[in-house]
Structure formats: structure tokens, C-alpha cells
């Protein structure tokens, strides 16, 4: 009996070790993916986690497409689960932080985000953690002596969860443009009272009414992440859009042919063909003579 058990143990051991080896071998064939997790606060209620997944292939970084990334707040448990995304063609994805985050956020001094790649047939399991302290920006447009200034105040929560200003935070002052954000000054840092200022250029085009959206941004900061604050001001020069494509010209569509050309060509056609029709009618008279 004992021998049978012994035998069984040996067999089981062999099977187990084979299974472990097999698993290890499978793990060896998988590639290593790297996760880059960033935090993006567009407004207090619009916050995103951005992920970029890349891998090394033939000594080059290539994006990893179509892998599932799960996000957690604090710990990898169902309580901390925030959501998941599939990466796109560029290996990127963004998760809009769900309501569950905001419910927990108010009681936290800092947020620990975890992004995980698990149970993938091609890539090894990987985690990426990111600790973020929530920062907020207050933005004002100040006009004094015809000088326009953008003022920004940066605040974080102290240990009692009260908001306090912070000095020495690097701030970008930008304006929104169709394809990108245009800096209106060099990088500024907040002073002792958490305030930074930038002059607003006097010759910047705005929209039709002159509205310009000013953006103050903490860019990819440790530990604040990326934080933006926007404010639309009527500080730009109103631009008028001149739609030349609707004017009459040689290059416009048929509906916008220049009138003189239209008259000339049609006039010539009418005269020439009119004469020809007259001639044909005359010729048909021959028949009846």
C-alpha cells in the first residue's frame, strides 16, 4: 500500500514538474511588454488614465495593439477596479475615470493607480503603478492698464484635506488652436503664494467674436500628473473667414463661373448656332420650291 502511495507521489511529482516546466516554457515564449501610465486631469470631473503599451521587436519599440489593460485604484481587487480598455493601433488607450473613482477620491490624500496586463497569450503579465497627488488650478484673466495678464493659482490638499497653495510648480500658459496648443509665454513657476502670471499677446487671433480659450497646464508632473485648466476669454482679435471658394472665379465650381465669361461664351454659341439653324431652315425651303 505504501509503495502504491509512493509510486503515486512520484508520478504526481513528475506530472507537476512537467506542468510547471511547461508553464515556464510558455512564459519564456511570451514577450515583455512595457506599460506607460499617465494621469490626465482635464477638469475636476473629467479625468483620464492614458496607457501606452510598447514592446521591443528587432531592436525597435513597436506599439502593442489590441491588448486588454485593466485599471485599479489602490489595490488590484474588485473594490478598486476602475475599468479596462483595449489598446488601439498605436498601442494606446484612455480610460475615463468612472463615478466609483470620484466617490473614493475625496477621502484620499493621493491616488495610487495600477494598470495591469494579465492573462495575455503573447505578453508576460505586467503592472505599472502611478501615484498622483490631486492638484487644481484656478485661472483668472486680469486686465490692468490695457495690459492683459493670465493668472494661475495652484492648490493641493494638505494632511487635513484642506486646500493650500503650492510654490515652484512649473506651468505652461497656452491657447487652444485647431491642431495644437500654442504657448503664449515661456514655462513659468508658481511663486510663494502659488501664483504664476503670463502676459497675453495683444495680436492673437481669436474666433469670429474674438474668443480665445486660454489653457494653463501642469505637464506630466511627478506627482501631479497632467493637469489642465481652461478659460474662454474675449481677448483675441476677431477673425473673419473669407470663403473665396464661393466667389466667382476661373477656378471656382461651375455654379460660380464669372458672369462676363458666361455671357461671352453663351452669346457666341447662340449667335453661331442661331445662324446655322437659320441656314438649315433656309435649305429646307429648297424642297418646297
Amino acid at each position: 500500500m505504501k509503495g502504491v502511495w509512493k509510486c503515486f507521489a512520484v508520478v504526481a511529482g513528475l506530472v507537476l514538474s512537467a506542468a510547471i516546466q511547461g508553464h515556464a516554457a510558455q512564459q519564456d515564449q511570451k514577450s515583455r511588454a512595457r506599460l506607460y501610465l499617465t494621469y490626465f486631469k482635464y477638469s475636476p470631473t473629467d479625468r483620464y488614465l492614458n496607457i501606452k503599451v510598447i514592446t521591443r521587436k528587432e531592436r525597435r519599440n513597436v506599439p502593442v495593439e489590441d491588448v486588454k489593460i485593466e485599471f485599479y485604484l489602490g489595490e488590484k481587487s474588485s473594490a478598486g477596479y476602475l475599468g479596462s480598455i483595449m489598446t488601439d493601433r498605436e498601442g494606446q488607450g484612455s480610460l475615463l475615470l468612472p463615478l466609483s473613482f470620484y466617490a473614493a477620491a475625496d477621502t484620499l490624500l493621493s491616488y495610487l493607480f495600477v494598470a495591469t496586463l494579465t492573462d495575455n497569450s503573447e505578453y508576460l503579465d505586467t503592472d505599472m503603478e502611478l501615484e498622483i497627488i490631486d492638484a487644481s488650478i484656478e485661472l483668472h484673466g486680469i486686465v490692468q492698464d490695457s495690459q492683459r495678464t493670465v493668472q494661475a493659482i495652484v492648490r493641493v490638499r494638505d494632511s487635513t484635506l484642506a486646500l493650500v497653495t503650492v510654490p515652484d510648480v512649473p506651468l505652461n500658459f497656452l491657447v487652444e488652436r485647431p491642431l495644437s496648443l500654442l504657448p503664449i509665454s515661456d514655462l513659468k513657476r508658481t511663486g510663494d503664494k502659488g501664483i504664476a502670471m503670463s502676459q497675453f499677446p495683444s495680436d492673437l487671433p481669436g474666433d469670429r467674436e474674438g474668443y480665445v480659450t486660454v489653457v494653463v497646464k501642469i505637464d506630466d508632473h511627478d506627482p501631479y500628473g497632467t493637469v489642465l485648466q481652461r478659460e474662454t476669454l474675449r481677448w483675441g482679435i476677431p477673425t473673419s473667414f473669407d470663403d473665396k471658394s464661393q466667389k466667382r472665379s476661373l477656378w471656382s465650381a461651375r455654379a460660380n463661373t464669372p458672369i462676363p465669361l458666361l455671357l461671352l461664351v453663351n452669346g457666341l454659341i447662340l449667335v453661331t448656332w442661331g445662324i446655322m439653324i437659320y441656314i438649315v431652315r433656309e435649305l429646307l425651303q429648297i424642297k418646297h420650291i
Binding site: L250, W251, S252, A253, R254, T257, P258, L261, L262, V265, I269, T272, W273, M276, I279, V280
Partner: peptide
């Protein structure tokens, strides 16, 4: 498009052909 010289050419060729036939 009457702005294009090709269209002028089409018009004038047809016209000239008609006159020549007449």
C-alpha cells in the same frame, strides 16, 4: 465647366464640324 479651355475646345470643334458639314 466653362472656365476650362478644354470645354471651349469641345464647343468650337462641334461648331466647326457643323459649319464644315453645312
Amino acid at each position: 465647366r466653362i472656365q476650362s479651355p478644354i470645354i471651349w475646345d469641345v464647343i468650337i470643334i462641334v461648331t466647326y464640324l457643323a459649319i464644315s458639314i453645312l
